[in-house]
Simulated scan of single mutants.
Amino acid sequence: MNWPSLIQDLIGSGLTQAQIAARVDTGQSHISELYRGGRKQPGWSLGERLISLHRERCGKTEQAAA
């Protein structure tokens, strides 16, 4: 999964990093690290929540895959 691309899509849908973090129950700094590539993979449950939010907001999880 291309996490920076997925997060960029969510930002493009009108959410801030802080709003994304709140929606998936993590800290904004964690979202920032994933977005910048400092953290390559979230934990399984966080990854699932990010994918679910992406599907809800953007409706196209496939394009975020790498």
Rank of each mutant, 00 (worst) to 15 (best):
T16C: 12
E62Q: 14
A21Q: 05
Q17F: 12
E33F: 00
A21H: 05
H54E: 05
Q8H: 14
A65Y: 15
L53M: 07
I11F: 11
K40F: 00
G43Q: 04
I20Q: 04
W44G: 03
L50E: 01
H30Q: 13
T26D: 02
L46F: 04
E56Q: 14
C58D: 10
Y35L: 13
L15G: 12
Q63T: 01
T61D: 15
E48I: 06
Q63M: 02
L50M: 07
R23W: 00
G27K: 09
T16D: 09
I31F: 07
L15S: 11
S29Q: 10
R57W: 03
Q19N: 09
S45G: 04
D9G: 15
Q41A: 04
I20S: 07
R39L: 12
S45A: 09
S32Y: 06
I20D: 03
G37C: 00
A65K: 15
I20H: 03
S52G: 11
S52D: 09
V24N: 04
G14E: 13
A18T: 11
K40T: 06
G12E: 14
H30W: 05
K40D: 06
L50D: 00
Q17A: 14
S32P: 03
P42V: 02
G27M: 07
K60G: 14
D25Y: 08
S32A: 14
I51Y: 00
R39D: 05
C58L: 01
A21N: 08
K40S: 13
D9C: 12
L34C: 02
C58A: 13
R23N: 12
Q19T: 07
W44A: 09
I11S: 14
L10V: 11
L46D: 01
E62M: 07
G38K: 11
R55Q: 08
A22G: 04
S45M: 01
E62P: 02
R36V: 08
T61Y: 14
V24L: 10
A65L: 15
R49H: 07
R55E: 13
A22L: 14
L53I: 03
R39E: 05
T61I: 15
K60W: 08
S45F: 07
R55A: 08
G12H: 13
G27W: 03
R23Y: 04
Q41D: 05
L50H: 03
G59E: 13
E56C: 05
A64E: 12
R23G: 02
I11A: 11
S52Y: 03
L50G: 00
Q63A: 04
E56Y: 02
L10N: 06
W44R: 09
Q17T: 15
G47M: 01
Q19S: 10
Q8P: 04
T61N: 14
Y35Q: 08
G38N: 12
H54G: 10
I51N: 01
K40C: 00
A18N: 06
